[in-house]
Amino acid sequence: MTAKILIFSCNWDGWSCIDSAANEGLGYPASVNIIKLTCLSSLNSGFILKAFENGADGVMLLGCKNQQCQYGQFNESIEKEYNKAKDIIKMLGVKGDRIMLARMEPFDGRGFIEQLNGFLHEIKNLAVPAGAQKGTDKP
């Protein structure tokens, strides 16, 4: 079974990578789901934890490179929320690095797929899936 990944993507550079990948005919497993936000800085660690609570095996945060933010955000807050979520996950005893923050150049479809595949591979190598207890693919 492929790992269940939830991607939080910003509307700008992050989304442009996802869109470019599709337009270049680059696919990814259907167990990868995407939620689009205006900017990653609107995401708090609660959402990341909520994803794990609902059975995600990994959460990917897809955003722009520093200083490239459409809104002029310096991305401090996202780093903070990202680290906070990582610490909490660790505290809860979940093994492995299951949160990934990927900062992309705009329209880099191939780069997105590479990052995602690397992440999928890492998650797959972890013995116990975080989401093994909860959630199933079958409706």
């Binding site: 936000l37 205006t38 800085s41 809104y71």
Partner: peptide, 29 residues
């Protein structure tokens, strides 16, 4: 500009972005 940085740091959820609030994201997720 709707970046939402205010919403993400608000400890009580007093500030929210329409369409990107807790319940919407929670339900989608």
């Amino acid at each position: 500009t709707r970046c939402g940085a205010c919403a993400s740091v608000c400890p009580t959820g007093a500030i929210y972005l329409c369409g990107q609030d807790n319940s919407t994201i929670g339900a989608t997720l």
